[in-house]
């Protein structure tokens, strides 16, 4: 199964939550996972209710069976300074570069350099081994930029490799690209059962395929239970209002006559939604990818909810495919 799992999705679909739940799910049975974020939003810290993450891998949660989840907020500037230090023993010269704005240039303006540094750091963690030659992390899960930008973000190494035709950044980009395009990597997309996110997911998959990046699963997030099926609702909208009023009264509801219309109206909205969701499910099924569904967590996602979601993912075998 893929050791590097990249999680993307349209804004508002909960990709950080899914990435975190996946990191927990893959950390069972004594395994160790690393959850990385690259956009400086501190979404992981908020989710796990911890202080802001430093540029340092630290344990953020334990999984059933002695597993561990580590987390890291990758900062492009620090990654570049580390990198320069590693290859050039720059020391104080690094600070001089920073003062001149060269670091700022390299990490914010120079095309793609920032992205190479971010993906490069994650790939380094994927490949890192301990003294016994075992992988330090069984899986690295990245909370990646949203669907609209993820292909460019991951593929930017190609761009840089083309632009910087020689030199260490070029080599780094090539090395990163080899990891990203291998079956070791899977790019997952998170969606909701709504038209726009599903459309964006389909577009995103096409872009990933075009860039020869390995597509993993589709995660359908915030799935709400269907409390009443569509046919029942159609019946409700029909001529049974009087009966409904009587039954409400029988169930102990007072003033039921005035409630029937709004209740049936709510049911009609629900029916419309169920119908739209079914259409979107069909579109997703047509993508031919493994799919996992996660339920809507009403009251904000906390650690307990993350564990529930992780259990759900384990049940569905999410993240287990790939690298066969």
């Amino acid at each position: 199964m893929s050791r590097f799992q990249v999680v993307s999705g349209k804004g508002g679909t909960g990709k950080t939550t899914v990435a975190a739940a996946l990191a927990l799910a893959l950390a069972t049975e004594g395994r160790r996972t690393l959850l990385v974020e690259v956009e400086g939003r501190q979404g992981i810290a908020q989710l796990f209710g911890s202080d802001a993450l430093p540029y340092e891998e630290r344990k953020i949660a334990v999984a059933p069976g002695g597993g561990e989840v580590y987390a890291l907020a990758i900062d492009a500037e620090r990654a570049l300074l580390d990198y320069l230090q590693m290859f050039y023993k720059l020391g104080s010269a690094g600070r001089a570069l920073k003062k001149l704005g060269a670091i700022d240039f390299a990490t914010t303006i120079a095309p793609g350099v920032r992205d190479v540094l971010l993906t490069g750091k994650a790939c380094e963690a994927v490949r890192r081994k301990d003294k016994q030659g075992r992988f330090v992390y069984d899986h690295v899960i990245m909370d990646a930029p949203p669907t609209g930008r993820v292909t460019r973000f991951l593929n930017v190494n190609d761009e840089v490799a083309g632009l910087a035709k020689i030199g260490p950044i070029h080599n780094q980009a090539q090395a990163v690209m080899r990891v990203l395009k291998s079956p070791q990597t899977a790019v997952h997309l998170v969606t909701l059962l709504e038209e726009m996110p599903v459309q964006e997911t389909a577009d995103g998959i096409a872009e990933l395929h075009a860039a020869e990046l390995p597509v993993g699963s589709v995660f359908v997030n915030m799935v709400r239970p269907h409390l009443l099926d569509e046919d029942a609702l159609r019946t409700a909208a029909g001529g049974r209002r009087k009966e409904i009023a009587k039954t409400l009264t029988r169930a102990g509801v007072t003033g039921s006559a005035a409630l029937v219309r709004p209740l049936v109206a709510q049911a009609a909205e629900h029916a419309e939604r169920v119908g739209l969701e079914r259409e979107q499910r069909a579109v997703l099924a047509g993508l031919g990818l493994p799919t996992a569904e996660l339920p809507l967590i009403g009251d904000g996602v906390d650690l307990a909810a993350l564990h529930d979601l992780a259990t759900e993912l384990r049940k569905q075998g999410a993240g287990e495919e790939g690298d066969t």
Partner: peptide, 24 residues
């Protein structure tokens, strides 16, 4: 089977939908 949802089931469904809505 589709046609034959009982009035109790239907009404209970409406009530549960409403409960969910109120929670939201």
């Amino acid at each position: 089977a589709i046609d034959v949802i009982s009035i109790e089931e239907l009404t209970a469904g409406l009530l549960r939908l409403h409960a969910e809505r109120m929670q939201v």
